[in-house]
Design a protein around this nucleic acid. Sequence first.
DNA 1: AGGAAGATCCGCT
DNA 2: GCGGATCTTCCTG
Length: 225
Amino acid sequence: MPGRGTYTDSDATHHPLPPLDQLRRLPRQFYGRPVVEVARAAVGKLLVHQVRGRTLVGRIVETEAYRGPEDRAAHSAGGRRTPRNEAMWGPAGHAYVFFVYGMHWHMNLVTGSAGEPHAVLIRAVEPVVGLELMARRRKMTADRRELTNGPGKLCAAFGIDRRHYGVDLAGTGGLYLADAPETRVVTARRIGIDYAGAWANRAWRFLEPGNRYVSRPPEGRLRGA
DNA sequence: AGGAAGATCCGCT
DNA sequence: GCGGATCTTCCTG
C-alpha cells in the first residue's frame, strides 16, 4: 500500500507531480477565462476523482475548446439551448457531462462568463493514481494506453457519468482539477466534427506531443501552442 | 410520432 | 480500416 501523500511505483509517471496529500484544487478563476486559453492551460493539470475513500488521478494530456454559439461544432451552436446542453450556459468551473453514441460519456469544463456557452472537452488523460480500479472498470490490464486515451474511455475509467452533470469543480466536491507544472503543448484540428465547415479547421485541440495517452496523433507538422 | 445523427469505442478482417 | 453497437435528443434533414 502506498503511504499517504506518496505515489506507488506503478502509479509513478516521468512528470514531476505534487505529493498526493498536497493536491491544490484549481480555483474558479482558472475556468473564468476565454475558453481557448483554458483548453491550453488544462493540459498538464490533474483530473482528480475522490469517491467512497478511493482516489483516482489522471494527468490531462489532450483537450478541445468549444465556443458556441458561433462555433458550429459546439453543442451550443446557434444558441440552441436544451436540457442536455444547459450546463454550457452556466457559471465557469462546473462540469458539462453528456452522453453520445448510445453508450459513452464525455466530460467538459465550463469556462468564461455565465451566459457564454463555452466548454473544454477533456479528450485524454495519463493515468497517475488508481490504475487498478481504472483497469477493472475498463476490463483490461493497467499497462495499456487504451485505459484512458479517449474522451469516453477516461470517463469510463474514472466513473464519470450523469451523476456529475453540472457539478461544481471549484467547490468542495470529489471531482475537480488540481494544479501541476506546465508542460509542452501543441495545437491541432479538432476531432470528429467534420460537419462543422470552416470551424473544423480551427486549431482548438491541445495536446502534449509524444504522450502515449493522446487519443490519436495529430496530422501534419506539430505547431507549438 | 418517427427517424436520423451523434465532440466514440471495440472487435474483426 | 470498417461496420456494428446502442440510446438520447432533436428536428422533420
